[in-house]
Simulated assay, not measured.
Amino acid sequence: MTRSTTNRLSRRQTLALAAGAACLAALPARALTTAQARQLIDGAVADINAIIGSGKSEAGMYRDFEQVFARYADVPTIARFALGPTARSASPAELSAFTKAFQGYMARKYGKRFREFQGTRIEVVGAREVKSFFEVQAIARTPGQSPYAVSFMVSDRSGANKFFDMLIEGVSLIKTEQTEIGAMLDRRGGSIAKLAQDLQSMG
């Protein structure tokens, strides 16, 4: 990767974070509590554990992971973060198509990672308030391997209790997707429509 490409992606990520933070801050604060944040992730983790242990086909598991992602994640906010500054100039139809394609893409991508660890159990171990959101901490335990940390960032600023970021071993989902989706968008000349179409078969 060239220095100019790295700088462009870095600028894109910084602008996307600033835009996303401004959108969240502009929404009215609600009354989410630490207990409610943990309850949300307890539910998500229970569903993920059930899918991992279901013995379903790959396609069946990915459909289930997409349902979990849609139910517990603030998909529109995550999609806007991933799309970066381009989201501000996108039409409602473009954003809708991208968000739908992005949801399936994310379910396949992260579902594939969880699927690789058959026998893994994820356990919520704590929750804490961090400024305007809550961090719910979990541990993923796989037989024969060292456990690793998974954290969920939860907010109700979208109007419902949802997680808007997930850290796997300290690596942020939204920061990773900002960089990767930004690079994909650049390769398609900035066309959201082309990216949304391609995401339907990626992940």
Rank of each mutant, 00 (worst) to 15 (best):
G119N: 10
A140G: 06
I122V: 15
L173V: 03
Q137K: 13
K131F: 11
Q137C: 05
G126F: 00
S151H: 13
R128C: 01
D156G: 09
Q178M: 14
S146G: 11
N161W: 08
E169F: 05
S146R: 15
V171W: 02
V136R: 01
A160I: 03
N161T: 15
R157Q: 10
R121S: 08
I181R: 01
G144Q: 01
R141C: 00
N161V: 15
I122D: 04
R115A: 12
E129F: 05
G126P: 11
A149C: 11
E169T: 11
M153A: 15
S151E: 11
S151D: 15
R157F: 12
G144T: 00
Q145E: 01
F133K: 06
K131C: 11
E129Q: 15
M184A: 07
V154Q: 03
N161Y: 05
F163C: 07
G119S: 00
V125G: 08
E116Q: 14
V136F: 09
K175H: 13
M184W: 04
D165W: 08
Q137H: 05
T179N: 13
V136K: 01
E129L: 14
D156S: 10
A127G: 07
A149S: 15
L167P: 08
G182F: 04
G170W: 07
F164Q: 02
A127E: 02
A183V: 04
V130Y: 15
E169W: 08
T179Y: 12
A149T: 15
P143H: 02
K162H: 01
Y148F: 14
E135G: 12
F133Q: 11
F164C: 08
G159A: 13
S146L: 11
S172I: 07
